[in-house]
Design a protein around this nucleic acid. Structure first.
Ligand code: ZN
Ligand code: ZN
Ligand code: ZN
Ligand code: ZN
Lengths: 142, 142
DNA sequence: CTTGAACCTCTAGTCACTGTAGGTCCTATC
DNA sequence: GATAGGACCTACAGTGACTAGAGGTTCAAG
């Protein structure tokens, strides 16, 4: 039986995060000692590891919640799980593309600046006037 | 004199967002009609455009706040403004790098899956066991 | 039996908004 | 001058995924 602190250490999670997962129903309510402290077993360790690994791969808690349900039905087809991963991949690729636009724009304004006074700062000029930009970056900054 | 709705339209901002910027002190308190409605001039339009453009380029509101102060002192050196942009560029580049790691890992697990049952789903296997991953992705999922 | 590290609950804060409820104002038309 | 209705007002709650703190209790070692 593991204390919450030990479980936290084993999974690289903060104690508060584990309690937070419990309040949102992502982790089950564990056994308690007579004094009211949480005690965890192997099943909870596995589940939390799954959650944390999903987070490290950028999945939302909602996506992880769905994946956990799917993982509990071994005989089913895995198309649903795969499509969640596909969706996640697409999100990651979209974000990379949007960030690359920003990267280009930022690089350009920094390298164009002569680093003299604010009056002729290229960085501030570009910020004041989007027409100085090469790209249409509408809802990009995320 | 512009109403808040017109200002919102001109800058591609939501009305609530403008009011939010006012409460956090990023936009000044504007003139009001006798009835208490906000009325804006050119200076506010320029300022809000600057803020929105900064956001589109991924700057935080804190960074934008600093940039606005700098922009108001035209005779100063622009090193500070440039270093804020540098910092932003670095953040963007770090995020791209981290996302590319995720992209690779996700692509691999999706393409390795035969898309049969949950019992042998590659996606779920990888999620259960990080040693199936190629990379050490510690605090990457962001 | 005492110490003190680890645990407990509850609340509030982060970032940058977004949405809603319930009410008021402005302006155009009649 | 009256009325309609769209735009405005404030105030507050919610988002995602935690994180930090206050103030109190429990557990295990010595
Ligand atoms: Zn400069
Ligand atoms: Zn631009
Ligand atoms: Zn699969
Ligand atoms: Zn991994």
């Amino acid at each position: 039986m593991l204390t919450i602190g030990t479980l936290a250490k084993r999974t690289g999670t903060k104690v508060q995060t584990i309690r937070y997962y419990e309040t949102i129903g992502l982790m089950p309510e564990p056994e308690r000692t007579r004094g009211g402290q949480r005690r965890y077993g192997q099943a909870e360790l596995d589940r939390l590891s799954f959650v944390r690994h999903g987070r490290q791969l950028g999945f939302s808690l909602e996506a992880i919640r769905e994946l956990l349900v799917l993982a509990d039905n071994p005989s089913q087809s895995c198309v649903d799980a795969d499509s969640i991963a596909q969706r996640q991949l697409k999100q990651v690729e979209d974000r990379i593309a949007r960030l690359q636009v920003l990267q280009l724009e930022l690089k350009r304004m920094i390298s164009d600046c002569t680093h003299h006074s604010v009056a002729d700062c290229r960085v501030l000029e570009v910020l004041r006037d989007h027409s100085e930009c090469l790209t249409d970056h509408d809802q990009i900054g995320a």
